[in-house]
């Protein structure tokens, strides 16, 4: 369990985090989203016990980072986009070394167990310098799990990985959720967040803009609809404009053109759209609600914040 309670962090006069609060429950993956400089990494480092909050507190598995950061570090696994391994060390020695740092009872056995879980048993005796980018990231994840922590902090764990390796890693992260880990995923990859995150926290300029279930966040803002049709797209757009509907081109399919529009009153607007198009002699094929991606919702949240 991660509980972030009113955390503010200043670096000199710069406020990196401004009274942020959120939590991550056991068996939950929460995506921490935000543009560069929003404060995501600062928040992760505070939770990991390597950066002190200026005010407020973060509680990890019942332990306060203010009161006992060392005990907090013992409860967290931390993975970033940079594996930062000892290239000259064989995998099994490397993992066992970190096992000893975390005071794991049988570091060699635990290293072997993790190597097997991540499909690295065959290369356990090889030096890490010879590993591919994806394998190195797997090692970083194994290192973070060597002490079987209840909390995992993942900062862009799949960036720079090829799609197949990224999918493998995602599947592994999801399997950890099933084992009741609290997982905080910091990422710019909104597709990845949409696929695996149960909840989302959007931060901007050090403040939390929005928190909620991923499905709730995706439903944020005005619903959008797409109408597909045959015939002249210019005439169709003109007809909608005359009916007071502001539409923009969308991707059509099967030889049809498409327009997208947003409305707070779909019952009346959609009927008006159909009437306008039929009156203009446009052959309507479909009119359907558009499923919004997390990316669309996120960008809209940011647009509102900047406005």
């Amino acid at each position: 369990m991660i509980e972030v309670r009113g955390v503010t962090r200043r670096f000199g006069g710069f406020v990196a985090l401004d009274d942020i609060s959120f939590d991550v429950r056991p068996g939950e993956i929460v995506a921490l989203l935000g543009p560069n400089g929003a404060g995501k990494t600062t928040a992760s480092r505070i939770i990991a016990g390597i950066l002190a909050p200026t005010t407020g507190d973060a509680v990890v598995d019942g332990v306060s980072v203010r009161e006992d950061p060392t005990a907090v570090r013992a409860r967290c696994g931390f993975v970033t986009d940079t594996p930062a391994l000892y290239d000259r060390m064989p995998l099994r020695d490397y993992l066992a070394f970190f096992g000893r740092l975390y005071d794991v009872r049988s570091p060699a056995a635990r290293a072997a167990e993790l190597a097997e879980q991540l499909g690295l048993t065959g290369v356990a005796g090889q030096r890490l310098g010879a590993f591919s980018r994806g394998m190195r990231q797997k090692v970083a994840i194994a290192r973070a799990l060597i002490h079987d922590p209840p909390v995992l902090l993942l900062d862009e764990p799949a960036s720079a990985l090829d799609p197949e390796m990224a999918q493998t890693l995602r599947a592994f992260i999801v399997s950890l959720r099933a084992r009741e880990r609290s997982i905080l995923l910091t990422t710019h990859d909104l597709d990845e967040a949409q696929r695996i995150a149960d909840r989302v926290v959007v931060v901007y300029r050090g403040r939390v803009l929005r928190t909620g279930a991923t499905s709730e966040i995706r439903a944020t803002g005005r619903p959008t609809y797409v109408v597909t049709f045959t015939g002249d797209a210019g005439r169709a757009r003109g007809a909608l404009g005359a009916a007071g509907v502001d539409a923009e081109p969308a991707n059509g399919a099967n030889g049809c053109s498409a327009l997208r529009f947003a409305t707070d009153d779909p019952a009346n607007t959609n009927a008006g759209v159909l009437r306008a198009l039929l009156d203009a002699g446009v052959g309507v094929v479909t009119l359907s609600a558009e499923e919004r991606s997390l990316e669309d919702a996120y960008l809209e949240i940011l647009r509102e914040a900047k406005a």
Binding site: T70, F78, T82, A84, Y86
Partner: peptide
Amino acid sequence: AGVIERLRVTPVS
């Protein structure tokens, strides 16, 4: 290289 950061996230004194 980030190696020190990896050591810092451990509970090592």
